[in-house]
Structure formats: structure tokens, C-alpha cells
Design a protein around this nucleic acid. Structure first.
Length: 273
DNA sequence: GACAACCTGACC
DNA sequence: GGTCAGGTTGTC
């Protein structure tokens, strides 16, 4: 589900409630989600006090001091906080229940593609997923964006989706940014003029910030740290709108697979040539 | 690059 | 019944 704005919204929701909270218990209903395994996970984290929650791309990093917990929400993962008193029933597809002295956190995940890993803090820099991530898309400088994309021959959509190039973008924000920049998703990055690349950079920052204000996009399953939906889907111009008229020119929006992902764009406003 | 794999559920 | 789904990884 979640791309950068959704993951960041969850981080901002959980952080104030959980800072300095001690993890007292963990109920594991679906052990396969945990790395390296339930036993190591418990040994590293139970009894520890949470110092901070950070984010890099779509990855959440719970800082317990000596140890860290990495959380990747996959396609449908959610972290929902509740104070102990309000606990009446679990969210659907709850697989893990974290009991802190300041409340509960439920990990729910319909499709079970997410993962959580406990590891010593000094091993983060060698972590295969973490260390492969490119710079975070939010607040990325134009110079870095340009350096990472300009002149590369791959399709622009594939590059934007590649977490090693830039971390945090997924299918929604990629399609929305390409539409707003007027760039066809199949174009080679090298074919973009500097002006086009600059425009892509500008609209990308705009939609990420706007999506954060609206607390993410709830297309299907996404909910924030309180279990509430976001509202940026109300401002989607192309994502999920195949066949509907382009909001700019009225041409029916086209849906095709690009970079192995379903892609919606306007063939008129985003010309290939 | 294309495709299958990991899963469950919603929609046509 | 078939198709599609906010992600990532591993295989040709």
C-alpha cells in the first residue's frame, strides 16, 4: 500500500505516542513476518525503550537504542496505535500485537508482503535492503535528482520506481508526477530536456507535500497510524482513472503495463515523441 | 527488460 | 471465472 507519504504519515502518528515507551510484550500470530525469527526478535526488543522512529524511503526504523526494528509495510501493511483503554477488538488481518507501557500497536497486513526485522543498531549500515536505498524522495535537492536521473537510458517510470535510484516513490506518485509533468512513462530519462526534468522534480515535490497534508492516499486498504483513511486519492488525476477523460484535455486515459506495473497516463498530454 | 513468486480480496 | 492490486526479489 504505502508509499512515502503514507509511511511518513504513520511515522508522525506513532512517534508522539510511543516516544520513551517500553516494549513489554509481543504476540506473534504470523511468525513468517519476523526476521530473523520470533526468538531473536523477542530477545533483541522486549524490555527495550523506544528512542525514536525514523524513515528512509518506505522503510520505518524504530530505534530502541542498542537494537533497531525495521518495518516494511509491503503492499497492504498497517501500523495502528491504540491506547490500552480503547482496546475493543483488533483491526482486520492483525498478525502482530506490540504491547508498550503506553499503548498497543497492531501490525495488520492483508496480503502479508510486509516484513519486520530486529537487528543490532551497528549493523544497519550493512543491511542489504537499507544500504541499497537511494536518497529519500522527500526534500531531495534538484542537483541530486538531476544527477541520479539525467542521461540514463532506462524508462523514466522504471527509474522513479527503483528504490536504489530514489527512495520512497511507488506506483501512485510516479504516475501522478509523470502526468503533471507531461512526460510519457516509457520515455528514456536521457530523452528528457533539462526543462522537462526540472518540471518533473518540481511536481514530484509538490505532490509529496500535498499528499502529506492530506495524510496519504487511501485507494484500497491504506489507513494511517490511527486507523483512519487519507484523502489525497481525491486529488489523483490519473491513477485508478483508466478510460476516464483526461482532466486537462478530455482524451480518455490509457492503461498499459510499463516497467512491469499497471500505468495510467494521457496519450495526448504525455506524448512519447 | 519480462515474468513469476510471495498472499488475500475486490471487482467485472 | 478471470483480472487486478500503494512492493520487492529472484529467475531467465
Amino acid at each position: 500500500m504505502p508509499e512515502l507519504p503514507e509511511v511518513e504519515t504513520i511515522r508522525r502518528d506513532l512517534r508522539p505516542s510511543l516516544l520513551a515507551a517500553r516494549l513489554e510484550d509481543l504476540e506473534v500470530r504470523l511468525p513468517k513476518l519476523l526476521r530473523p525469527g520470533v526468538q531473536d526478535f523477542r530477545e533483541r526488543l522486549l524490555g527495550a525503550k523506544l528512542r525514536d522512529i525514523r524513515r528512509r524511503g518506505k522503510l520505518l526504523i524504530f530505534d530502541f537504542g542498542k537494537n533497531l526494528m525495521l518495518v516494511h509495510l509491503g503492499l497492504t501493511g498497517a501500523l495502528i496505535y491504540r491506547q490500552k483503554e480503547t482496546g475493543d477488538g483488533y483491526p482486520p488481518h492483525t498478525h502482530l500485537i506490540f504491547s508498550f507501557d503506553q499503548g498497543w500497536v497492531f501490525y495488520a497486513d492483508l496480503r502479508q508482503f510486509g516484513w519486520l526485522e530486529a537487528l543490532p543498531a551497528d549493523r544497519l549500515k550493512d543491511h542489504p535492503f537499507y544500504s541499497s536505498l537511494g536518497p529519500d524522495a522527500l526534500g531531495l535537492s534538484w542537483e541530486t535528482f538531476q544527477r541520479r536521473l539525467a542521461g540514463r537510458r532506462r524508462q523514466i517510470k522504471a527509474l522513479l520506481l527503483d528504490q536504489k535510484v530514489i527512495a520512497g516513490l511507488g506506483n501512485i506518485y510516479t504516475d501522478e508526477a509523470l502526468f503533471r509533468a507531461g512526460v510519457h512513462p516509457r520515455r528514456s530519462a536521457a530523452s528528457l530536456s533539462e526543462e522537462e526534468l526540472r518540471r518533473l522534480y518540481e511536481v514530484l515535490q509538490e505532490i509529496l507535500e500535498r499528499a502529506l497534508v492530506l495524510r496519504g492516499s487511501s485507494v484500497r486498504n491504506y489507513v494511517d497510524g490511527q486507523g483512519e483513511e487519507g484523502r489525497f486519492q481525491e486529488e489523483h488525476l490519473v491513477y485508478g482513472r483508466k478510460g476516464k477523460p483526461c482532466p486537462r484535455c478530455g482524451t480518455p486515459l490509457v492503461y498499459e503495463v510499463v516497467a512491469a506495473r499497471g500505468t495510467t497516463y494521457c496519450p495526448h498530454c504525455q506524448p512519447l515523441a
